[in-house]
Nucleic acid binder design. Sequence first.
RNA 1: UCCUCGAUAGCUCAAUGGUAGAGCACUCGGCUGUUAACCGAGUGGUUGUAGGUUCGAGUCCUACUCGAGGAGCCA
Length: 430
Amino acid sequence: MQTALIKNLARYAGSEVTVQGWLYNKRSSGKIIFLIVRDGSGLVQCVLVKKEVSEDVWASASRLTQESSLKITGLVREEPRSVGGYEIQVTGLEVVQIAEEYPITHKEHGVDFLAEHRHLWIRTPRQTAILRVRSEIEHAFRDFFYQRDFVLADAPIITPAACEGTTTLFEIDYHGDKAFLSQSGQLYNEATALALGRIYCFGPTFRAEKSKTRRHLLEFWMIEAEMAYFDIDDNMRLQEEMVYYVIQRVLERCSAELKVLERDVEKLKSIQLPFPRISYTEAVEILRKAGEDFTWGDDFGAPHETIISNHFNAPVFVHRYPTAIKAFYMKPDPENPAVVLGADLLAPEGYGEVIGGGQRIDDLKLLEQRIAEHKLPPEAFQWYLDLRRYGSVPHSGFGLGIERTVAWICGLEHIREAIPFPRMLHKMYP
RNA sequence: UCCUCGAUAGCUCAAUGGUAGAGCACUCGGCUGUUAACCGAGUGGUUGUAGGUUCGAGUCCUACUCGAGGAGCCA
């Protein structure tokens, strides 16, 4: 007997297979029972007709409750009346465990209840579809970098000092010393990029900000790349090719999941290279034409980003932000030192900033000056300054938030569904 | 931290200041092709907490707790 995944059942039409899974739903009518079984890869309807199965099998099927675990054996056949187009004519049924009364029903639930039961909520078709798309997205990023000779060089999670200010860091006790959970691997990436050329890291990052919106998590996963000898234009070109590659991969391999999510895939299919590029100053013009009272030099809020991105049906780069609102390591534009060679990528459909990146300062004196201006402790940055003392080169990098990317590609209302166990303000159970 | 809204059965929600109810889930019964199956019956309540007004409070008032949406910050 062969064991099969539900998503591959079409390959087994006409033969007998065993599916190992859980009972998603049951419908019965006296002489016939329909079991809807899930195995993580999909749903399949299994049919038992009373006079065609043994009494044991019939009795076992009758006592199954929602989410009971089971191994079910039968003949796979094409059946247009069944979801997925195939169903299993049951010949054998092994009950692994009869589940207790299951809290999540097939009716509607509120978000608070679902969040409290996240460990069970992730069993539902919609959530499994999202998590499979997330997995595909993560694989696609890794494949993209691998194909381009990037080295995966993961950054530390426990760090001795803030890289961009201390108010947003989670503090931990490091055997008597103060330490912090990383909010970015970037500074370490600059070191590994000067060692290996082109590198990326992929791991969790932590922000202690009291953000409470549909776009924020306290713990989120970030792909961060850093490239020696890349300028701002090389940087944007790499980013758009990467995002385009990931979208194509999801369209190619996750069409079933996107259908479950009712994602309008035309909006993803219409995205072409290259992505539009506008300067911060041009973005301010768009805001003013839209009737916003916006002062040059201020940072964009979420509503501003939406106005800007709605002008395009592809992700849009906004580059050359005012120096004053960006991080200390951003390289000033030689043609206009009031702005920096940084660029953010705004996703379409109001999903906001998914990438922040830019060219870094490669001059020792200027970097020392910036560290002083931002009132950062110079002793903590000596190793970082070493990178400008020993073989400094122009270099650039970026960070992409995985959950925002998943939310955008899946068309989610809220980022909390884009990660198995979201960490939100005052909320870390389960 | 600020603004807005909310909390009633396991879940989703009703209930002019006057006897707390429905659907789902669960239990029992019925039904040979169901698609969140359907039909009949049953089980299920300290109305978030603490005070107050009133003959009488789920409903009105005050405080608190918890949650949701948004803002700021960011990916």
